[in-house]
Amino acid sequence: MSKPRIFTGFERFWHWMQAVLIFGLLLTGLEMHGVYRLFGFGAAFSAHVVLAVTLIVLWAFAIFWHLTTGEWRQYVPREAGLLRMAGYYGYGIFSGEPKPFAKTAAAKHNPLQRLAYFVFKAAIAPALWITGLLMLFYDAWRDSALGGVLPLYGLAGVHVAATFAMLVFIVAHVYIAATTGSPWYAYLKSMVTGYQEGRE
């Protein structure tokens, strides 16, 4: 029996490209924030801008793809099953129980994933790119009415706060997606091959 296909080529390209860009943005962004010194502020800033613009273009394509394919429905959060998933990660997973929801092409995400990805896409990512673009083009609006009500310090604060939210998301996402399959690396492999791997 052939393994069912879960992720299309575009989805896998989108996912891994996004991962690379986000790690690059974190690396350069945290340097600009003064957490460490690696490339120098100027180089980090230029790289950050290039990575960010690339990511925004990628997102534009992804949004178009999700709208035209109807795949956007996969990210609409539902209340049903949330508690079961939370219960699974809090208890069942330790005794080796199977996941409450199987991964299929029609339902790629469990209810907790839906919620997490929705928060990522609807709150964290927009907070980053909206504040980022505003800061990049600060000179275009600083003398307008917007400049009077939107201090650069506040914008940067939102950008930094969203970065921390992103970091928390990444920690949880990498842990769950890369280690909780069956066998433990099954989801990671799926994201590479596109096919369902291991037992569900």
Partner: peptide, 11 residues
């Protein structure tokens, strides 16, 4: 506001 120099301590 100078990125890299000015901080948001609470955030």
């Amino acid at each position: 506001y100078v990125p890299g120099e000015d901080r948001h301590p609470w955030v």
